[in-house]
Design a protein around this nucleic acid. Structure first.
Lengths: 125, 125
DNA sequence: TCATCGTTTAACCAAATCGTTAAATATTCA
DNA sequence: TGAATATTTAACGATTTGGTTAAACGATGA
């Protein structure tokens, strides 16, 4: 097994949670407001236990808080892990938003050499 | 199996590729410039075939281009999939950047089309 | 030509993932 | 009490993932 820092474990779980279309759909749905498990399950063609497992994955990644309310369980999105993932990607944002990067995008074959310039540029953070 | 659009498949592969610390380390390394397989493997304690598999996962997600140069294989990062993942997360950025942190409460059923307006509105109070 | 170097492929294994159906649990209500 | 509802847990199976070692492959250089 590989050495993993706490943050690394977090990112593992967060990215893995986002790697399934049903789980992303659930995140999208919850971004519009809380929902019960049944409401979250309704658009999908899989069984309720399958949804229950997806919710557990999201919960383990910190993306979801579940609070029983009577016999329904109300699910609430926690966006902090989204922010964590966003933060990791942001470190590389300059690589595709950089004007050299965009130039390379339009130059086709010369992409490679242009990208080297872009990378040098990006390196001096 | 679940219905997946092309973009959804992309995001599946991209997020899954980023869900392993060795693969993220490789991405980080390549953000600083091209490298050979051996150079990419060096910091890690796993075997070369293990690295080779990680590289394949990155390649399949579109994050990596490999070009044989003599007997070394030169690896180059392609940031487009990072941008794709970033783009997905960006849709929810306002949820954690809202200064009151209560935005989700104000997003109703119409969030898909009117999210930006609602967010502006929510921020104003 | 032959040995070496860099890398991949093959074969295998353990564990995780993603789905299923059936059963269990807990809450509400007639 | 007992039926219905909402959800989870258990048990199972197929597939994928992530690692290993051994072998193969292609390029280099003595």
């Amino acid at each position: 097994m590989v050495n993993r820092t706490k943050a690394s474990v977090d990112l593992d779980a967060i990215f893995a949670a986002l790697a399934h279309p049903i789980r992303r759909a659930i995140v999208e749905r919850l971004a519009g407001g809380d929902a019960t498990v049944g409401e979250l399950a309704e658009p999908h063609k899989v069984s309720l236990p399958a949804i229950s497992k997806h919710l557990r994955v999201l919960e383990d990644a910190g993306l979801l808080q579940v609070e029983p309310e009577g016999r329904v369980h109300r699910c609430q999105l926690d966006v902090a892990p989204l922010s964590t993932a966003f933060g990791w990607l942001t470190r590389y944002r300059v690589l595709w938003e950089d004007r050299f990067g965009r130039l390379a995008e339009h130059l086709g074959e010369s992409h490679k050499t242009e990208r080297k310039e872009e990378q040098k540029h990006a390196r001096k953070r």
